[in-house]
C-alpha cells in the first residue's frame, strides 16, 4: 500500500496537478476583489469564506484524474487480481491525493490571505480549518472519482455529486473563523466521518465499475 501511495503521489505532482490546483485556487481568490471592488474592510470580513469556497472548487479539479485512468489502464484490475482490498486501495488513493493537494493549497492560502487583506489571526484559523477539512475533501474527491469512473462526461457531473456533500465542510470551515474552537471541532468531526466512510463507498464503486 505504501508503494501505491508513493506511486499516486508521484503522479499527482508529476502531472502538474498540484500547480494547476494552486493556480486555480488563487485565480478564484483573485476574482473576488475584482468582483466586489477594493473595499479592504469588506474583503477582510468575507476573505475567510472566500478561501474556503476557492478551496472547495480547487479540490474538484483533479477528480477526473484520480480513479478513471487507473480503471482504464487496468491497474485496478491488477491490484484486485493480487487480492488487494479495493477499500484499502481507495484509502491509499485518498492519502496520496491529500498529500498532493493539501500542502500546496495551505501554502497558497497564505498568498490568498495577503490578496484579501486577511488579519493574521483569521489566517491562522483558516489554516487550522484547512488542515482539518482537507482530509475530508480528499476523501470526498476520491469517492466521487470512483463513483463516476465508468461514466461519460464525468467531469461535468463531478461538481454536482461532490459539492452538495462538501457543504457541511464549507459551513463548519467558514464557521470556525467566527466560531473559533467549537467550529473547528465540528469541522474535524465532519472530516472524520467522510474519511471513515469514503473508502468503503469508493471501494464498492470501483468493484461495480470493474464488473
Amino acid at each position: 500500500m505504501i508503494a501505491l501511495v508513493w506511486r499516486d503521489l508521484r503522479q499527482g505532482y508529476a502531472g502538474g496537478g498540484a500547480t494547476l490546483v494552486v493556480a486555480f485556487f488563487l485565480l478564484v481568490a483573485i476574482l473576488f476583489p475584482f468582483a466586489i471592488g477594493p473595499d479592504t474592510a469588506l474583503l477582510s470580513r468575507i476573505g475567510g469564506g472566500v478561501i474556503w469556497a476557492a478551496a472547495l472548487l480547487a479540490a474538484l479539479m483533479p477528480v477526473e484524474r484520480l480513479v478513471a485512468p487507473d480503471l482504464e489502464s487496468g491497474v485496478l484490475d491488477q491490484l484486485a487480481v493480487r487480492g488487494a482490498s479495493l477499500a484499502a486501495v481507495a484509502a491509499a488513493k485518498m492519502l496520496a491525493h491529500w498529500l498532493a493537494f493539501a500542502p500546496p493549497l495551505m501554502l497558497a492560502a497564505v498568498i490568498a490571505a495577503g490578496l484579501l487583506d486577511l488579519p493574521g489571526e483569521t489566517l491562522l484559523l483558516v489554516e487550522a480549518g484547512l488542515l482539518l477539512g482537507t482530509p475530508g475533501l480528499a476523501a470526498l474527491a476520491v469517492a466521487t472519482a470512483a463513483l463516476l469512473a465508468g461514466a461519460r462526461g464525468a467531469g461535468a457531473v463531478a461538481g454536482l455529486v461532490m459539492l452538495p456533500l462538501a457543504v457541511p465542510l464549507l459551513i463548519f470551515g467558514a464557521g470556525a473563523i467566527t466560531g473559533g474552537p467549537s467550529g473547528l471541532k465540528l469541522l474535524a468531526a465532519t472530516s472524520l466521518l467522510l474519511v471513515a466512510g469514503a473508502p468503503l463507498v469508493a471501494g464498492a464503486a470501483i468493484r461495480a465499475a470493474m464488473e
Binding site: 482504464e72 489502464s73 487496468g74 487480481v81
Partner: peptide
C-alpha cells in the same frame, strides 16, 4: 495468478523497467 488482458497496466510516464518493478 497473473492476468494479461488488453490493458497493460503500466504507468505511461515511467521507464519500462521501473513500471514493471512496481508490480
Amino acid at each position: 495468478v497473473a492476468l494479461m488482458d488488453e490493458a497493460h497496466a503500466l504507468d505511461r510516464t515511467l521507464p519500462l523497467g521501473a513500471a514493471l518493478r512496481f508490480w
